[in-house]
Amino acid sequence: MNSKTCLVVDDSRMIRRVASRILKELKFETEEAENGQDAIDRCRIDMPDAILLDWNMPIMSGLDFLKQLRKEPTGDKPVVVFCTAERDVLKITEALDAGADEYVMKPFDSDIIESKFFQAGLI
């Protein structure tokens, strides 16, 4: 099987499950992390092709994770799609400046995830 890998990072187990289900339908192999630190640890072991990333999480936020990720060896490789309830234009700009490739505003559905992953060149 030649599918791409996606790390779903969110402190909500429900969101991780829903997102993983959608991504599996899009032929991604998924892994899950519940905060930024957990995600960094996983990326150091195996860098995924894509990361679906929440913003507000305990221990390490999505934004801090992204800044750290881009400093890691091969940390420029994953396509990062933020997936957050933050809708403020300044916040979106901050995420893009930190190296996000696309941005999903919650709530989302499968069409939105597919559309954003398509725009990010993942499918």
Binding site: M105, D109, K116
Partner: peptide, 14 residues
Amino acid sequence: HFDVQRGLPIRDLI
């Protein structure tokens, strides 16, 4: 919210 997330790149949105 749903309209602007189907097909529109985030940079175009902002």
